[in-house]
Deep mutational scan, measured.
Amino acid sequence: TETREFDNEEEARKEAERLRRKGQDVQIRKKGNRWELRRT
C-alpha cells in the first residue's frame, strides 16, 4: 500500500482520478487537516 498526503481535497481527488484511469484502486480519506490518498 502506498500513501501520499495532500494539502487540499481537490488535489487529492485529481490525483485519485488520474490513478483510477490507469486502473489503480485508490481511496481518499481525511486525516486531520490534510487528505491521504491510499493506493492498494
Rank of each mutant, 00 (worst) to 15 (best):
T1S: 11
T1K: 10
E2F: 14
E2P: 09
R4D: 07
R4E: 09
E5Q: 09
E5H: 10
E5M: 14
E5N: 07
F6M: 02
F6L: 01
F6Q: 01
F6N: 00
F6S: 01
D7V: 06
D7N: 06
N8I: 05
N8G: 04
N8K: 05
E9G: 02
E9K: 06
E10K: 08
E10P: 05
E10N: 08
E10T: 09
E10Q: 10
E11P: 02
E11W: 03
E11L: 06
A12N: 00
A12C: 14
A12F: 01
R13A: 08
R13Q: 12
R13G: 04
K14N: 10
E15Q: 04
A16H: 04
A16T: 02
A16D: 01
A16P: 00
E17Q: 08
E17T: 07
E17S: 08
E17A: 11
E17K: 08
L19G: 02
L19N: 03
L19P: 01
L19F: 04
L19Y: 06
R20N: 06
R20M: 08
R20E: 05
R20S: 07
R20K: 08
R21H: 08
R21G: 12
K22P: 03
K22W: 08
G23D: 04
G23F: 03
G23P: 00
G23E: 01
G23R: 01
G23N: 03
G23K: 02
Q24A: 10
Q24K: 06
Q24W: 15
Q24T: 08
Q24R: 05
D25N: 12
D25P: 08
V26A: 04
V26I: 09
Q27F: 08
Q27A: 09
I28V: 13
I28D: 01
I28Q: 00
R29D: 06
R29S: 12
R29V: 15
R29C: 14
K30E: 03
K30N: 05
K30H: 03
K31F: 03
K31P: 01
K31E: 06
K31W: 00
G32N: 07
G32H: 01
G32L: 00
G32W: 00
N33E: 10
N33D: 14
N33P: 15
W35F: 04
W35S: 02
E36L: 05
E36Q: 04
E36W: 03
E36N: 00
L37F: 00
L37Y: 00
L37M: 04
L37N: 06
L37S: 06
R38A: 14
R38F: 15
R38D: 14
R39H: 15
R39Q: 15
R39A: 15
R39N: 15
R39T: 15
T40R: 10
T40D: 08
T40H: 09
T40M: 13
